[in-house]
Design a protein around this nucleic acid. Structure first.
Length: 230
DNA sequence: AAATGTTTACTCTGTA
DNA sequence: TACAGAGTAAACATTT
């Protein structure tokens, strides 16, 4: 029997659903899309809780990627060898966590037919649908993998994701609790090409809906003056 | 073979 | 109380 009230810091399950953890990882990446293995890596680096029972939670996470329409799968180009596809966020995923709780989403997405999804992806990421003819795509910092414009991969202001904790090195001695609860929102990570320098916005992990709401408000305030991308 | 992706089924919990 | 979302397990298919 586990002793009540006697849990180490790594025993504590983070107050995030798999959806928000995955969205956090994708949002934190430079190209706003990640292969499955990198999503695993992101989560394990930041949340020691997920360094154990990997088969269990990774199965759940894969289930979430396939099952939830807020994630879209972007295939690798033939000249980008590797296993699996890249995963990105549905462009409408912005205010999923509007209610301030990262454990429960506010709404589901419209279910799209395959042709609708294809149209949506090619309208948001114009180059994805024509990958076969992208061999001569000019190399530019304006573009992410597959020539997907970085601008298109950025979320408009007001569309916020959970703050991203700093990575925690897997050292034998566990870091203090403050190391993981001190969250920093780096707005340039949300949209590196256009947003201003990072600012530390959150002091604590939002463990409750009301605190989460407050944190979201802070993020929104900071992003308020950022120009809208078209 | 292992990693990745899909689907189904079930339980639990929060919300309207 | 019904419903929707989240978590988990498991079986199976596909890809590298």
């Amino acid at each position: 029997m586990p002793r009540p009230g006697k849990s180490s810091y790594s025993d504590q399950k983070p107050p995030y659903s798999y959806i928000s953890l995955t969205a956090m990882a994708i949002q934190h990446s430079a190209e706003k899309m990640l292969p499955l293995s990198d999503i695993y890596k992101f989560i394990m680096e930041r949340f020691p809780y997920y360094r154990e029972h990997t088969q269990r939670w990774q199965n759940s996470l894969r289930h979430n990627l396939s099952f939830n329409d807020c994630f879209i799968k972007i295939p690798r180009r033939p000249d980008q060898p590797g296993k699996g596809s890249f995963w990105a966020l549905h462009p409408d995923c912005g205010d999923m966590f509007e209610n301030g709780s990262f454990l429960r989403r506010r709404k589901r997405f419209k279910v799209l037919r395959p042709d609708q999804l294809s149209n949506m992806v090619s309208s948001v990421w114009p180059h994805v649908g024509v990958m076969d003819s992208m061999a001569s795509m000019p190399v530019s910092h304006e573009y992410g993998p597959f020539g997907v414009p970085m601008k298109a991969l950025c979320h408009p202001p007001g569309q916020t994701m959970p703050a991203v904790p700093v990575p925690i090195k897997p050292t034998p001695a566990l870091p203090p609790v403050s190391a993981i609860s001190a969250l920093t929102v780096n707005s340039s990570q949300i949209c590196p090409s256009t947003l201003p320098a990072s600012s530390s916005l959150l002091e604590q992990t939002p463990p409750t809906p009301s605190e989460g709401k407050s944190a979201l408000h802070s993020v929104r305030s900071a992003l308020h003056s950022v120009p809208v991308h078209s």
